[in-house]
Amino acid sequence: MQLITAHVMSKHLSLSSFSFRAPQDSPEKAIPSRKLPFQTFLSFNPKKPLSLKTHLPIMQISKTLFVFCLISCLSMTSSQEQGATAYEMLEKFNFPRGILPQGVRSYVLNTDGSFEVYLDGECKFGVEGGYSLSYGRKITGKVSFGSLRNLKGVSVKVLFVWMGITEVSTGNGELDFYVGPLSASFPLSNFLDCPQCGCGFNCKDIVSDS
């Protein structure tokens, strides 16, 4: 949201130091010299009653800023207020809900596709292929149909190094994860259920073994 501010600057001229006198050829009695505030000077006429308009420009600017802020706030919508969960919103953009772990506390989705997702805490678990995924408390990015870009807050462990996942896309029944110039593909069916922190997608197997 951008704010518009107006600044009135007077670098070499100070109107408040001006004094007023009646013209020399006027038969009227000279008006004593006096100093007037800046806004009062703008509306002063020796032959007419003094008109004070000191607060009018300020009120106009305040109304303009208020309308601008109101429009900016209305242009930002949170789908959470409409009753949809973060997982349901993923499905509307052609993503399986399982690309987010359990424990989403809240989220904000703006009209331009930018979003913020907040988890209860950091979350790590293993996935197919020997990879490990890590989700931070806050995840941001930009979503469109079948595409997640500019991701921050999600990383994958490749060999012994953690690297940030910057993009995820869907197509041909697969999920493509991009880590810089590298990418890895997984079947969409692997992400139909939301993973749990710690045990990931294998929590049911762990419970049955115990």
Rank of each mutant, 00 (worst) to 15 (best):
L15R: 04
T40P: 00
S79N: 08
P49A: 09
S208Y: 10
V143H: 02
K53W: 07
F191H: 04
Q39H: 08
G171H: 01
D209K: 15
N190R: 14
S79L: 14
T166S: 10
E91R: 05
Y107R: 04
T111G: 00
R34L: 09
P49Y: 05
I4N: 15
N110M: 08
K47G: 04
H7G: 11
Q196N: 13
E81D: 11
Q80V: 06
V117E: 15
E174D: 13
L175G: 06
E88Q: 12
P27V: 12
V67G: 07
S19V: 15
G173S: 06
G83K: 02
S106M: 10
K157C: 01
S132L: 13
P37C: 05
K63A: 10
G121M: 05
S51E: 08
Q196E: 15
Y178D: 03
D120L: 07
M59G: 11
F95L: 00
A30H: 00
I165C: 09
G198I: 06
E91V: 09
S43M: 03
A6Y: 12
S51C: 04
L133W: 08
S75G: 04
Y87V: 03
P49R: 06
F125G: 13
E122K: 13
L151W: 01
S183W: 08
F93L: 05
F115G: 02
S62W: 10
G83L: 01
S17G: 04
Y118R: 04
S155A: 07
G136M: 05
T85Y: 00
E167Y: 01
L52M: 01
R149L: 05
E174T: 06
I165K: 05
L36V: 11
S10L: 12
Q80N: 02
K47T: 08
L192M: 12
H55S: 12
E174G: 00
N110D: 06
D176S: 15
P46N: 02
L70G: 02
P96I: 08
Q24H: 15
L52W: 02
V179K: 02
M59P: 02
V179L: 06
G146T: 10
K138I: 07
K204F: 09
D120Y: 04
R34Y: 08
P27R: 05
F44R: 00
Q39T: 13
F125Y: 14
G146W: 11
Y107L: 08
K152G: 09
A84F: 11
